[in-house]
């Protein structure tokens, strides 16, 4: 193979990262929620009807009304309301071993939050099971401050 041919068949690569290349404010509600996570505390927000949304939102999705300024401490324990067992984690997943994505309704909350349950094996998982928070070793004010949920009593 001549040098020219080698150059012609060389694969051209360009790295392109798709990202938010700017900082943004989380606002008064999610800002407080993530500040709470940094301090290892989970807070929901009350709607006008008195329901507690976790994660909190500035608006009640069922009515579109603004939520109240009242924040309620919830968890750290809760109940799994649905789950999906991931036997082969993707690189984009937070755990590199089999785990469950789950909807967890924390004690004191009226909605469930999506997170992962580090249960070890599928047979341990069931809807209605109790789980509790396992905090990340270092927290920084993001959703991964909750490293995972684990079956209650297992942590």
């Amino acid at each position: 193979m001549s040098e020219a041919t080698a150059a012609e068949t060389e694969e051209l690569c360009a790295t392109h990262v798709l990202e938010y290349a700017y900082k943004r404010s989380l606002g008064p509600v999610l800002g407080r929620f993530f500040t709470g996570l940094r301090d290892r505390r989970i807070e929901g927000v009350k709607t006008a009807q008195g329901r507690v949304l976790v994660p909190p939102a500035e608006y009640d999705p069922s009515s579109g009304e603004s939520t109240c300024d009242e924040f309620i401490a919830v968890g750290p324990g809760g109940v799994v309301t649905s789950w999906a067992w991931v036997s082969q984690p993707r690189t984009s997943h937070p755990l590199d071993r089999p785990f469950a994505f789950a909807l967890v309704q924390l004690d004191g909350a009226d909605t469930a939050m999506l997170h992962v349950v580090d249960a070890g094996e599928e047979a341990i998982m069931s809807t209605g099971m109790r789980v509790t928070v396992r905090w990340a070793e270092e927290t920084s004010g993001c959703i991964q401050d909750i490293a995972s949920f684990v079956p209650e009593g297992a942590s």
Binding site: Y20, S82, W83, A84, S92, H93, P94, F101, A102, M113
Partner: peptide, 24 residues
């Protein structure tokens, strides 16, 4: 992008949560 995407919930896993809710 704050509460969900960082956890990497892929489309199949999200649909699986929904399927389980109805199966249960």
């Amino acid at each position: 992008p704050y509460t969900l995407a960082p956890l990497g919930p892929d489309a199949i896993s999200m649909a699986a949560l929904q399927a389980r809710a109805g199966l249960d």
